[in-house]
């Protein structure tokens, strides 16, 4: 089929580009851990591997970054998170803990190679001290809190500052996923915290957002999406004190968010859900299907009364 078939007599038939756009939409909207299954379906519906591969090449990187997926690095040095903050180019991602650059295959969702980061890619020793102290403190917290969690701390501005007197900014990414397709259930947690170190006044501004998604689909399809945003601040101190207070703030906010999520679930059966449909009728007894004549009769009387008025 000709590309971009815009001829009016072909209005019913989609162009290759349109099909690819549809395929991309499905891939981009795949729930956590399900893109491979969505891809299989899309491929079979399209019946055209060329179009599918074009769509997959564009959609997978977007999906992988949005879902902050963690990939095992081939040298067993741990996992690299696929994030916009560590992206050097489409297939290369900076891993700050090991100071490596990981090359990834987006569609296969694997890391194929790692190399040590170059000096230009790394922060200055002054910044790195703040960053690595915070990263260490944070991985203790993530390790204790998320059974499948991964975190990374990136310096996204001011990484070359040699000493006090400069502003710089970190982004903390926490990502946890649990895929259980045999139980028809997948979920993910992600939180992203922007930490802005201001030299004058000595102040650290923290902005965060948490996103939680969970999908259960055994003979049905139910999605949970929960999110919230936060703002907080602390004093610009030594690397150790900053690491401790920032980690404490994050721990506190995330625990609070989790508690409010639980509360939303607790309120579901008796309050929230009731506004959609009650468990029992307002009469608190099952509907009198055996005796519905009363409703028709009452209506007739009401009608007659209305006419009589």
């Amino acid at each position: 089929m000709a590309d971009g078939g815009d001829e009016p007599d072909e209005a019913e038939e989609l162009s290759g580009r349109q099909k690819a756009e549809i395929a991309k939409w499905f891939l981009a909207n795949a729930p956590a851990g399900e893109i491979q299954y969505v891809a299989k379906d899309v491929r079979s519906i399209l019946g055209d591997d060329g179009i599918y591969e074009m769509a997959a090449a564009e959609a997978y990187p977007v999906h992988n970054k949005a879902h902050l997926i963690a990939l095992q690095m081939p040298d067993r040095s741990g996992e690299v998170l696929i994030t916009a903050y560590g992206e050097l180019d489409k297939n290369n991602y900076f891993e700050p803990r090991t100071a490596q650059v990981a090359t990834v295959d987006h569609v296969k969702q694997v890391c194929t190679n790692v190399r040590p980061a170059s000096d230009e890619e790394l922060p200055s020793p002054y910044i790195e001290e703040f960053r690595s102290t915070l990263a260490d403190e944070l991985s203790k917290y993530v390790g204790e809190t998320y059974p499948k969690g991964t975190c990374a701390v990136y310096c996204i501005s001011g990484k070359d500052a040699e000493g006090p007197g400069a502003d710089f900014e970190f982004v903390i990414v926490i990502s946890a996923a649990k895929y259980s397709p045999q139980n028809f259930c997948n979920g993910r947690w992600q939180s992203i915290w922007n930490v802005d170190f201001k030299d004058d006044p000595q102040f650290v501004e923290i902005k965060g957002k948490i996103l939680v998604g969970s999908h259960y689909f055994e003979e049905g399809n139910v999605h949970l999406d929960a999110k919230n945003e936060f703002k907080d601040s602390t004093i610009f101190q030594s690397p150790e004190d900053c690491a401790a207070s920032i980690t404490n703030i994050i721990c506190h906010r995330e625990t609070e968010f989790m508690a409010s999520l639980e509360e939303s679930y607790v309120h579901l059966p008796d309050t929230t859900f009731k506004d959609l449909r009650r468990k029992l009728p307002v009469t608190r007894t099952l509907f009198p299907w055996n005796n519905t004549l009363q409703f028709s009769l009452t209506r007739d009387i009401t009608r007659e009364l209305e006419i009589g008025q």
Binding site: T145, C185, W189, S214, A226, L268, P269, F273
Partner: peptide, 17 residues
Amino acid sequence: LDQVYFGKTREMVCTLR
């Protein structure tokens, strides 16, 4: 929906954190 489906999504969140 209430007991099984919502319950499963809640369980999943508690597995994550």
